[in-house]
Nucleic acid binder design. Structure first.
Lengths: 198, 198
DNA sequence: CTGTTTTCTATACGGTTGCATTGATATGAT
DNA sequence: ATCATATCAATGCAACCGTATAGAAAACAG
């Protein structure tokens, strides 16, 4: 029987997620990664397939947590659920509000250089999923195809995706998890108005 | 008399700006920087004070170009000028529309790790300037302090700053300078509506 | 042509990168 | 107790990092 592993896999990924979130992918060396996660170098290679492999698992872990924990109410909900999600982005204590922004946003900006196809796909999938959730909530809310001000549902969903990126980017740039608050409230007002005049 | 320099200072900064914009700050090595800008390593040290010095001049160059070339109309203009600026962010051919996003946004996300105080200040100054320009244009437009939907002018200006970050981040993440188009149009609609019911 | 000045090219430096290798170590089965 | 197995800590590797230094090269003054 083999020697037992000195780490808990899930726990290690959670720690890796936190440190990649804060420091970024390229900037974080393997040796620093060891110290911060409690993993040893051999484990990073054999268990995760090196630094990029660990990072990919981290992205999946982060995405799953966000989707099941924060996005999912929008699948069955409406504008109220969109509003709740948006407010969560700038609410201290919420999973999606962080001084370090969003791991996916950060990676999307980094990866324009790294150009890893695997990272690329993880990122695009996440944004497609977010857009899908917005679409669902907007569709659930009503049967309008074109809003009162000529706003198409599909376009509004895409616009919200850009806005979410901006809220996260602002939070990180200012190291303040509430930096994007004004955009959040503007969007909430717009969405609630949209329903009022529906 | 000294040996003449083999480079044009302004031209070198413009090239450095382009490559930092595309590849980021940390990710771009000095040797690669040499090749891409035509500068030699000695010049980077003696003329600009090393890699960070060159990058700071690059940030100043980028900021000045954006402020004088794209932001300034908002100082004397109104909502029309804000709309024109926002549309420029996703209009191919515009200086502020790029597959690589925005140098300041990218740096703001990188610098959460780099933690250089000099970079920090350049970034914060830029966003403060952008917010100021939005404020001016909104103030010029009318004398309302609180918009019809309870939107304060100062809050709207801050919201627009977050939105600009999001548009750039989306453009870069998708390597498509029009990715943020839907948010741009949503904001334009909101702004023009705001004026209509003023 | 010589001397002075500044930039140039080339090389060197210590430190870090991600990954690979090696021999010790810890487990349960036999 | 011995063995098989897989993980561990430690070290080595070539490549790169940003910077520093040294000698060659290019300009003009005298």
């Amino acid at each position: 029987m083999p020697r037992p592993k000195s780490y808990d896999r899930e726990d290690a990924i959670a720690k890796a997620c936190a440190v990649f979130w804060e420091h970024g992918y390229q900037a974080l060396g393997v040796r620093e990664l060891e110290k911060l996660t409690g993993l040893n170098q051999f484990a990073i290679r054999s268990e995760f397939g090196g630094k990029e492999g660990l990072f990919l698992e981290t992205l999946a872990y982060y995405s799953d947590a966000a989707i099941t924990g924060e996005l999912s109410p929008m699948l069955e909900g409406g504008i109220d659920e969109i509003v709740a999600f948006l407010r969560g982005l700038v609410t201290p204590g919420s999973m999606t509000a962080s001084d370090f922004g969003c791991l996916i946003v950060n990676t999307g900006i980094e990866n324009a250089r790294v150009k890893s196809p695997r990272l690329e796909r993880a990122i695009q999938d996440y944004w497609a999923t977010l857009e899908h959730h917005f679409r669902c909530a907007l569709k659930n809310e009503s049967d309008w195809q074109n809003g009162p001000a000529g706003i198409a549902r599909a376009d509004l969903a895409k616009a919200l995706v850009s806005a979410v990126m901006g809220i996260h980017a602002h939070n990180r740039a200012l190291r303040d998890k509430t930096a994007g608050l004004d955009l959040v409230e503007l969007l909430c007002t717009t969405l609630l108005n949209l329903r009022a005049v529906k």
